[in-house]
Simulated assay, not measured.
Amino acid sequence: MKSKLNIKNGLLYTSIKLTHEGSYVIIDNVIIDTGAFHTIITTDFLDELGAKFSNDDKLIEASGYGGASSYAVRKKIDSISCDSVALKDFKIDFGEIDPNERINGLLGLDFLKEAKIILDLEELVMYTK
């Protein structure tokens, strides 16, 4: 199955679903970012998911383009999916991305590589082999 992509302000957007301990949340306005090493989602969705902190969670320092840094929590969740593409026991960073709250997350290279995603920019879809 192919996931439809949108272009807004010159960036590729999609929606994802996070599932953890029987709860799930759908997150729109997630940028597909091949330049982001890790997937990062705003902390609001960690609260919506009802995910509790555990001893396995790690506080990490994330650095962005231009050297700006911030802190995030790296947490393993039960699954992350984009339409029919799903990965189980996936570590996601939860932190601040956009102080103006226009962006809900970055779907990073970690997800794209592990899921073996193919981006078709002519048809504006992504899928796996």
Rank of each mutant, 00 (worst) to 15 (best):
K58L: 13
Y13L: 00
N29D: 15
D57V: 02
L87V: 04
I103D: 09
L87G: 00
K75P: 08
H20A: 01
D57M: 05
D78R: 11
T42R: 13
S79M: 04
F45A: 01
I16W: 00
D83P: 00
G35F: 06
K75E: 03
L106F: 14
G108L: 10
L109Q: 14
S84R: 11
G95K: 10
G95P: 10
D33G: 07
L109K: 14
D89K: 12
I92C: 05
S15A: 04
T42C: 13
N6A: 13
V73E: 11
I27M: 03
D83M: 12
G105P: 11
D89W: 04
K75C: 03
V30S: 02
H38T: 15
F45E: 01
S69I: 08
I31F: 09
K52E: 13
S70Q: 10
N29L: 07
K4P: 04
K88C: 05
K76R: 15
K91G: 08
L12F: 05
T19W: 03
D28N: 10
G105L: 11
Y71I: 13
G67S: 04
R74V: 09
K91T: 10
N6R: 10
L12T: 02
H20T: 02
A86C: 13
D44E: 14
G50Q: 03
V25I: 12
G22Y: 06
D83L: 12
I27E: 05
V25H: 02
S70V: 08
I26D: 11
T43Q: 09
F94I: 13
K88Y: 02
I26R: 10
K91F: 11
I7P: 09
T14V: 03
S23Q: 11
V73C: 15
G10S: 04
F37E: 14
D47T: 09
L112M: 15
E101M: 11
K52G: 12
G95A: 05
N9M: 06
D78L: 05
Y24Q: 08
I77E: 04
K75W: 09
S69Y: 09
I97W: 04
Y65E: 07
F37A: 14
L11A: 12
S81A: 15
F94L: 08
D47Y: 07
I97Q: 03
T42S: 15
S81N: 14
A86L: 07
